[in-house]
Design a protein around this nucleic acid. Structure first.
Length: 285
DNA sequence: AGGATAGCCTGCGGGC
DNA sequence: TGCCCGCAGGCTATCC
């Protein structure tokens, strides 16, 4: 669920309550959602690893990854996987769903007091403690391609033009471009009028420009609407995003194309469900 | 290089 | 109502 727009919306809504807050206490309910950044399997997770007693300085994002950075210099990477949520609960408020809460941070700043919770039923997500933001970047974020929101068309072209794989598969590859998941890949390809199975090497510079613009347009719009809520995605306040109502292809297999009324087709590309318009998205070009 | 497959998990909706 | 099945937004490892 959470792709770049959902994570960015989360970063934007979380920042006002988190930045400047002191971490009074941390409770880790499930040890196994903490994954070491380096390969050394540390047996113990200290409160300090999870920013205990720290003051939150800022939040960073690259692709679908979030980092919470403390004034001490420590950083905590957060990945939401498929079903992860970060919620902020004001003191006195009740959490509607309290199952699968794996980590809780009690926070206090000058204006508010409350707790941040990490919930993740499927546990594909995780927390990644690091000594510093630099370390987190080196160990994890450096393997990501440029962020989808800011990548430049010539950069995308350079990354794609020698490859023979389908464009959809490339868009989902986080080491090529970071932040695009199944929903926004389909939406962007539709907007750019590119067939999901076209080999990357057949895309011209102009195609890459259209595609970059489409990705960024679709994602910016989604961020403004709080992202796409399909099943379970909710933001830090527990609200779902409304971008799903704007989806033109994702989840609309068999329905008419919004541009030409042709029936949208569902296929599988790189083992992922893919929906596209056979008329508007031409494989020949 | 990149395809295919399996695995990590739970929740939900559809069909019976 | 309840059970079984397939499917889901991510990512990794392994084999070919």
């Amino acid at each position: 669920m959470p792709e770049l727009p959902e994570v960015e919306h989360l970063r934007q809504t979380l920042a006002p309550v988190l930045v400047g807050a002191k971490v009074l206490r941390v409770r880790l309910a499930r040890r196994d959602i903490v994954r070491p950044v380096n390969q050394t399997r540390s047996t113990r997770v200290s409160s300090r690893d999870l920013l205990g007693a720290d003051v939150i300085q800022r939040l960073e994002r690259q692709g679908k990854n979030l980092a919470i950075i403390g004034k001490s210099g420590r950083a905590l990477g957060v990945h939401l996987g498929m079903s992860g949520q970060l919620r902020f609960i004001l003191k006195g408020d009740l959490l509607d769903k309290s199952d699968h809460v794996h980590c809780t941070w009690w926070l206090k700043n000058s204006a508010t007091e409350g707790k941040l919770i990490f919930r993740d039923p499927r546990r594909f997500g995780g927390l990644f403690p690091a000594q510093s933001f630099d370390q987190l970047r080196q160990q994890r974020w450096d393997q990501l391609g440029p962020d989808a929101l800011t990548i430049k068309p010539p950069d995308l072209f350079e990354r794609l033009h020698q490859r023979n794989r389908p464009i959809k598969a490339a868009l989902l590859d986080q080491s090529l471009i970071a932040g695009v998941g199944n929903i926004y890949a389909d939406e962007a390809l539709f907007v750019a009028r590119i067939h999901p199975r076209v080999a990357c090497m057949r895309l011209s510079r102009r195609d890459c420009e259209r595609l970059t613009n489409a990705i960024q347009r679709v994602m910016s719009q989604a961020i403004g609407l709080g992202g796409s809520t399909i099943r379970s995605y909710i933001d830090s306040d527990g609200r779902g995003g409304t971008y799903a109502s704007k989806h033109q292809v994702y989840g609309r297999k068999g329905k008419p194309c919004s541009r030409c009324e042709s029936t949208l087709l569902g296929i599988s590309v790189a083992q992922r469900t893919t929906v596209f318009c056979p008329e508007c998205q031409d494989k020949g070009r």
